[in-house]
Design a protein around this nucleic acid. Structure first.
Length: 258
DNA sequence: ATGACTTGCTATGCAAGA
């Protein structure tokens, strides 16, 4: 199974690049974040023409998540929303089963600034995610949690830890709470394959951040329920951060055997 | 050139992203 996670910063604005990804990599599963469309307005038709079915969860405007599966798989919607999340109206979590593998696409809140009320909401969301992650592995089925976790797990995940706006994304509070999910029995796929590479997945649109290499590794594929032994490769699809109208995130691809 | 933000909306400027 080839699984991609990608924060697209609007699936409508990014549709040509999403179709480019599907044509170039033919992934089995794609988790999208920041789709920024309501579930009703999700672009099912052009994706179907490209050979993909989708479960979208969104309320328009901001946020929104989705799971795509290639047509030769069975995609079954499971649930939307994360039990215990502070803002269920923000559409940041969706689960679907693909050939019996549970897939969760997640968009963790940004948190804005350490002293902002949104920061406490981010911490609460990360706690709810860890809780759900534990439930999922306890069910015994293989599970993938993939998405924009909006946290640099270590200093190696940022080009300049001192430059992070408002001090967010690398605080001990955020890291401890993200670590609750991995402690529940998940493997960070990219780090498992590349222990010493930055693996950045996001670069600011401003200030030539991408060509300067000023990025963050804030998107992750987390493997649970025994899927870690199937991990064969993981890589950042940097080509999609280049060219016409890119997202500010690059897709992250994980390859699993079987 | 990997090239100096981008998106959708409380819209014609603004907040938010990280």
């Amino acid at each position: 199974m080839r699984l991609v996670t990608w924060n697209v910063n609007s699936v409508s604005a990014r549709l040509p690049r999403v179709l480019e990804l599907l044509a170039a990599e033919a992934p089995d599963v794609v988790c999208l974040q920041e789709t920024r469309v309501s579930s009703d307005a999700f672009p099912h038709l052009p994706l179907a023409e490209a050979g993909y079915q989708a479960v979208g969860h969104g309320l328009g405007g901001r946020n929104g998540v989705a799971v795509l599966a290639r047509d030769d798989h069975v995609l079954e919607p499971v649930c939307t929303g994360l039990p215990g999340e502070p803002r269920p109206d923000e559409a940041r979590w969706v689960e679907a089963d693909v050939d019996g593998v549970r897939i969760a696409s997640v968009y963790v809140p940004n948190g804005k600034a350490v002293d902002a009320p949104e920061f406490a909401g981010k911490l609460a969301f990360l706690e709810a995610m860890a809780e759900r992650a534990g439930e999922l592995v306890a069910s015994g089925a293989p599970v993938v949690i993939a998405g924009d976790v909006n946290v640099c797990a270590t200093d190696a995940d940022a080009w300049d830890i001192a430059a992070l706006h408002g001090g967010t994304h690398a605080t001990p509070q955020e890291r401890e709470r993200l670590a609750l999910t991995t402690a529940a029995g998940y493997t960070d796929a990219y780090r498992a394959i590349h222990p010493d590479e930055p693996g950045f997945t996001w670069w600011d649109y401003r200030g030539l951040a991408f060509p300067r290499g000023e990025g963050l590794r804030i998107d992750q594929v987390l493997l649970g329920g025994g899927l870690d032994v199937a991990l064969a490769d993981a890589r950042v699809l940097r080509e999609l951060r280049k060219g016409h109208k890119p997202s500010d995130h690059a897709p992250l691809l994980a390859e699993l055997t079987g």
